[in-house]
Design a protein around this nucleic acid. Structure first.
Lengths: 215, 215
DNA sequence: ATCGAACCGTACCGTACGGTACGCCTGCGG
DNA sequence: CCGCAGGCGTACCGTACGGTACGGTTCGAT
């Protein structure tokens, strides 16, 4: 019987964090390279310690994803004085952050890992990734959207729907293509277009939800 | 050395198709349940035959995904007389088909399998899924969009961009949530909202790319 | 100085699974 | 009737990997 995994306890000792870093590195380098032996060797620790700390392989995986996903923090957008320009900048900033995070190597790896995990009737990693990815962004964007509505700069009925449309406009087919390993989407390729994409998505979002838009 | 896999040859004997069906069933039932022994037992054939026909496990997997993905065919939309109403119906139909396919159990399984595969520096399955999923839809939608533009019903510069925006508006965060195993997205849940979602996405698409829209 | 906890390194075990070999049956051409 | 190709079922092999055990080492507390 494996030990209970401490999923809610986010505090890891520096040594443990070194182990998690090693595990993440292995994941990024080679998605399926995360074997207990490899992690132990990379982190210069014994397998016994891994099992003592994380219970079993799944526990180590969960801790790694959890710890790493929680590190992805969007910068908070200033909400103090909300004129049209500031709102637009905030939305643009969210689009930029969303695209940057989602196209990052770590994010792709984490999402792939979670999808693989979900393919085995285990959804814990998927929940963690969802919670720290899309849902985290949603939580931060929502007050901005509602402030925009209160200031009569935006018009929508459901902030949920508005957010999901925003997500779609920004992400489009980029994420799924990255997850599927589409070679025509290189990192430099994305970086070169990110500003144009951010602007386009923001324009479209305001076209749909701006105060002047048709209901 | 495994035999060369016949990826371009789409013709399988009925017996082979029965094997592929068994493989797909196992995949859908339990993502990681596709072991050679399990397939052989399910299809009532010998492992030796599997290896003779498909070379190795990867070949069987590729053949399964290839064969199944190619079966997903969108109905062709009539393009004969293209007034505003017909165009809108066509777009709506695409949105509906796209959503229906993407949220289907088989599609989710195939995408998960391909993502898992891509996590191991193998992108062949990802390419197959991309080619038969998003890209197939794009190929079919593109002439409709351009016909709409020629008829001055739509306005856009790049049909590529228009398609990708359409994809984003329709799919939003549904696919990634399904891939990650989000429990709050049940099949019945999606089905109940699909018509409303289709209408909303089409409305938004026309708001952005309709002839009356701002450039 | 001594003890014990924590931990490293490594050897070891069990199992699952990819891949192969082989014996047997069936159907078909001669 | 004979022989043989194709295929089924099963036994088997090798390996990779999850998980455990254990001796040796470091280090802090007493």
């Amino acid at each position: 019987m494996p030990l209970t995994i401490k999923v809610n306890e986010e505090t890891f000792t520096p040594r443990q964090q070194a182990v998690l870093t090693a595990a993440l590195d292995l994941l990024v380098e080679n998605g399926e390279g995360l074997t207990m032996t490899a992690v132990a060797r990379r982190a210069s620790c014994s397998k016994e310690t891994l099992y003592k700390w994380f219970g079993d392989r799944d526990g180590l995986l969960t801790a790694t994803v959890q710890w790493q996903a929680a590190k992805v923090r969007m910068p908070v957008v200033d909400r103090s004085h909300l004129n049209a320009k500031a709102l637009r900048l905030s939305i643009e900033q969210f689009a930029r952050d969303l695209l940057t995070v989602i196209t990052g190597e770590v994010s792709v790896t984490l999402n792939r890992t979670a999808v693989t995990h979900a393919a085995q009737e285990k959804d814990s990693l998927g929940i963690i990734v969802l919670e720290n990815g899309p849902l985290a962004i949603r939580r931060r964007l929502k007050p901005i959207l509602e402030a925009g509505r209160d200031a009569r700069l935006l018009r929508f009925t459901s902030s949920e729907d508005a957010y999901r449309t925003f997500f779609g406009l920004v992400v489009r087919d980029v994420q799924i293509r990255l997850l599927l390993g589409d070679k025509s989407l290189t990192q430099s390729n994305i970086e070169a277009n990110i500003e144009a994409d951010v602007k386009a998505a923001t324009d479209q979002f305001f076209a749909l939800y701006g105060a002047k838009a048709n209901p």
